[in-house]
Amino acid sequence: MSFFKKIFSSEKKETLDKGLEKSKTSFFTKFNKAVAGKTKVDDDVLDNLEEILVTSDVGVNTTLKVITRIEDRVAKDKYLGTSELNKILREEIAGLLSETNSGEETQFSIPTLANNAADGTKTPYVLMVVGVNGVGKTTTIGKLAYQFKKKGLKVVLGAADTFRAAAIDQLQVWADRVDVPMIRQDMGSDPASVAFDALKSGVKLEADVIIIDTAGRLHNKVNLMNELSKVKRVMQKVVGDAPHDVLLVLDGSTGQNAFEQAKQFTAATEVTSLAVTKLDGTAKGGVVIGISDQFKIPVKYIGVGEGIEDLQVFNKYEFVDSFFK
């Protein structure tokens, strides 16, 4: 397989390598113990590898898929040495991730929308961002706004997380930092009203992209579903097919809890893409592999540092190369 013949941009790759350092070190400490004294990939090695992948937060179902693929390789090749196991593992996980479209094609660009309004005004690309409080949702929105603006796109933010005053203020800090307009109302206002105003303003300003923040409460899934559905309906009064993307932000450092959040939100609303944050501060980077595989929703972005440039477009080949090299 030629998965890893691609030449990666050095600066971005160095940031990714550094961001995944804890995950890689944790994995290979266990991996090296598992194959110590072994020359052949046998049942004991595979059993140990299965345990390592599960404890690295890859998830049980995804781990079983990986182990099955390696078992097939062992059966086909008759004899595989432990020295080849890392290479095989990289190839099989990259192959697994290839079955779910990832975000490397986006490059922080926005698709051209064909359905311009009848009056000739530009149709903005509407991105609705969801996720529980504390996962890095506001920071992700700010970094996205920065990246889009850097590409020459005109960005408008909408502060529709009106449940917490801090959420509005935090988003305002990012709007000021990136120097993009933000539409806001008072705490406790109707989130759908804020979204409506943001889209109306975005259309008037001829924005290329409008990013709508939403509340991150999971205490009642029905209420969450109703609120997000209402926000969507109201936005569609301004831009008929909005939102064009519903991005779920997950905290990679929470490991299996990120799986649970993904289950909750995908049950409450249609999620079309994922961002996994805080991978630099954790040894749980394997969660990206499991979430991408289990939910069949493309991981578009990963957070590998606190810097404004450290939200990266997820590239499955770069990720696997950094994790397993």
Rank of each mutant, 00 (worst) to 15 (best):
S83H: 12
E309W: 00
T277C: 10
L171M: 14
E309N: 10
A145T: 06
D44E: 15
L16Q: 04
D190P: 03
Q261R: 12
K22W: 03
Q264C: 02
L20G: 07
D321T: 04
L224R: 08
Q147V: 02
D245T: 12
H244G: 12
V58W: 06
A195L: 07
F3L: 12
F148W: 15
K76F: 12
R184P: 00
R177G: 04
S229Q: 08
L274S: 09
T272H: 12
E270V: 13
K12R: 15
L311P: 04
T266R: 05
L16N: 11
D186F: 07
T39R: 15
G290M: 09
V313C: 14
V135R: 06
S98T: 02
A268D: 06
S2Y: 08
P298V: 02
Y301M: 10
F28L: 13
G307R: 15
V130Q: 13
G252H: 06
E318S: 14
Q107Y: 03
T269S: 06
K24A: 08
V129C: 09
D186P: 00
V209I: 13
A258L: 01
G202L: 07
N32Y: 07
H244N: 06
D251S: 09
L157F: 09
V54L: 12
L46H: 06
Y125A: 05
L205C: 00
D213N: 07
T266K: 13
F265E: 04
M182A: 05
S2R: 13
K300T: 08
A118M: 10
F196E: 02
D310C: 04
H219C: 03
D245I: 00
K284W: 10
Q172S: 13
L218I: 11
F28C: 13
V287G: 03
S98F: 00
V135L: 11
S10H: 04
S56E: 02
L199D: 03
K22M: 10
S98C: 00
K24N: 10
K78D: 12
Y301W: 12
V129F: 08
I183L: 09
Q264P: 00
I70R: 07
K221Q: 15
D245V: 05
V126C: 02
D186Q: 14
Y79V: 14
D169H: 01
T39N: 15
V129R: 08
F4N: 09
T121M: 02
F265T: 06
T39C: 05
I212Q: 08
K204C: 02
V320E: 07
D57L: 02
A34E: 13
A36Y: 13
Y317W: 08
M1A: 08
G37K: 05
L127G: 09
L218M: 15
F295K: 10
N116D: 14
G286H: 03
N226T: 01
E306W: 07
V129Q: 12
